[in-house]
Computed example of a mutant assay.
Amino acid sequence: MTVHGTVVAGFEGVREEFAAFLAAEEHPPGAQLAVYRGGEQVVDLWSQGVDAESLIGVFSSTKGAAYLVAALLVQDGLLDLDRNVASYWPDFAAEGKGGITLRELLAHRAGVIGLDAGFTARELADDRAIAARLAGQRPFWQPGRFFGYHALVIGALVGEVVFRATGRTLHAWYEERVRAPYGLDLWLGLPESEEPRFLSTLPMLPTPQQAAEIEAATASRYSMVGIAFNEHAPGNVELYDFPNSRAVRAGGQASAGGLGSARGLAGMYAAAAFGLGGRGPLLKPDTAAEFARIHSEGNDLVGGAPKAFGLGFQSYGSRFPALGAGAFGHSGAAGSLGFADPRQGFAYGYTRRRFAFPGGAAPENERLLSSVVRALG
């Protein structure tokens, strides 16, 4: 399969690894890969099925943009991690949630993973509507005691705190402080003018073995994971189809509704940690370290598997041993991944158009980022 794009001298091995992965795929996924060394782009690759300018649903990689806004506002003194969420948003205190701090919320410890009755498709595309419904929802566990992935709602919850504290939406802060100044192709709310660049997400095509694994692992739609992914709601759409809705793309749902490219994902993390285009880094080292520091580790009550979260951002030390301590980022259901590794001095972005099995950061990311670390020396 033809690989398009460029790499700088010394990163030829990354291109070779990208080509080798694609050659082994029975169903080409339509993938993009971008890497920054500090503020310099050193890898810019894409495959058949996409092009350099294609915008793809990045699913939960969107959360990285929401957490970056929260980190900036904490850094500016406009948000306090150890202040109760209800002090910003009084309605949130209902059903025993009054003592939950912003730190606990960001660390997926609040227990407000969804609604007993589920969300409609229209509500799930609108962060303010999600927040309004969740204000009166009882937690699904004792807040602060355990943690579980707030898959489709954490962006709305954090966004409501941002709005109540500053009078401006998370989306407006992201556009003003992050996306527009750096010219990033990672959008929270895709303008109509950019729609021609959007490529719809394609479903997973599992092998017979993978299909059997999926069937065996299927949980009740009323389980924790079912509620967190809104599977118990009448008419809930397949997850892969979520960004294929214009309402989701236009609204820029901050948990899973972002559209972008590998360039956009890698560029956002390069801007956050190293600076980009002559501008300094968005985050001070202490801020980046605090948001990357593990706050929740162990068995995730929603997914049922071991996980580790910083303040929102995922911690990848156990999943990707090639990464340095303090790397921070987020993956997305179709296989996308974006992060910064401040210690090793690089930022990484990967997208794919077709859903990967089993969801989250696609398996090929391990070999791709290992090739990046080797190239860095």
Rank of each mutant, 00 (worst) to 15 (best):
A180M: 11
A180S: 14
S193D: 13
S193W: 10
L186S: 04
G183K: 09
G183S: 13
S193T: 11
A156P: 09
P181Y: 05
R168K: 05
V158Y: 12
W173A: 02
Y149T: 07
W173C: 01
W173V: 02
P181D: 02
V162D: 02
L190S: 07
S193M: 10
G183W: 10
D185E: 15
D185N: 14
E195M: 12
T169P: 07
A180P: 13
A172R: 15
I154E: 11
G189K: 15
S193R: 14
E192W: 08
Y182F: 15
A172M: 06
G183E: 08
L186E: 01
R164D: 09
G155W: 03
L170G: 00
P181F: 08
E194F: 13
A180I: 09
E194W: 12
T166H: 04
W187M: 08
E160V: 07
V161P: 09
F147H: 10
S193L: 11
L184E: 01
V153N: 06
P181G: 00
V161D: 09
A180H: 06
F147L: 03
P191V: 05
E195R: 10
L184H: 14
W187R: 15
H171D: 05
E192R: 15
S193Q: 15
L184G: 04
H150S: 02
A151V: 00
G155D: 06
H171Y: 11
W173T: 07
L190T: 05
A156N: 13
H150I: 04
Y174D: 08
F147P: 07
V158D: 01
T169I: 04
G155H: 01
V158F: 06
L190R: 03
R179L: 13
L184P: 14
G148D: 05
L190F: 11
T169R: 05
V178R: 06
F163W: 12
T169Q: 06
R177A: 11
F147A: 02
E195Q: 10
A180L: 14
A165E: 05
D185Y: 08
Y174F: 12
H171F: 13
E176A: 07
V158E: 01
L157E: 11
R177Y: 06
T169M: 12
H150A: 03
R168N: 06
T166A: 00
T166M: 00
R164E: 11
E194L: 15
R164I: 00
F147E: 05
E160W: 02
V178A: 03
I154R: 03
R164N: 03
G183H: 13
D185W: 01
G148P: 09
Y149P: 05
E176F: 02
W187E: 04
A180N: 07
R164W: 06
P196N: 07
A180V: 12
W187N: 09
V161M: 09
L170M: 12
L184V: 06
L157Y: 08
L188N: 09
E195I: 08
L170V: 00
F146H: 15
G167P: 07
L186D: 04
L188D: 01
E195T: 13
L190N: 02
P191S: 10
V153A: 12
